[in-house]
Amino acid sequence: MAAEEHKLAIFRGLLKFRSNQQKIWGVLIFLSIVTTIEVALGIIKPEILMGSFLRMKFLNWIFIILTIVKAYYIAWDFMHIRDERGGLKNAIVLPLVILIPYLAFILLLEADYIFDVMDMGFVAWNF
């Protein structure tokens, strides 16, 4: 892969870099900002974000979404998926994007059910 094949735009073309090195530093700055936001939120734990959506706190949803954003930029720019052919891109990303949410969904749903059984059952679990 020659150096001039790199795609140098991130944020859907909003930000264009002149060289690949510049893009790497740009992505580092972006990832650092996201991590800093995560840590700051984790320490402050703002009261407004304590409401819940689908049995999980807003704050935790924000953490998970920011994590996926970070994962996207690590894969796309550091692992240069952005520069790969469409076929390879799909072969890598699709299995993960389909299987991981599926596994998470069935296991967490089951765990939530088991929690209810233990919580409302007639057997004491805390003795």
């Binding site: 993960l96 299987l99 998470a104 765990a111």
Partner: peptide
Amino acid sequence: TGFLVSYGFSRFK
């Protein structure tokens, strides 16, 4: 994924 999801399972339980 398997590890982290099983962590999530135990945690939700």
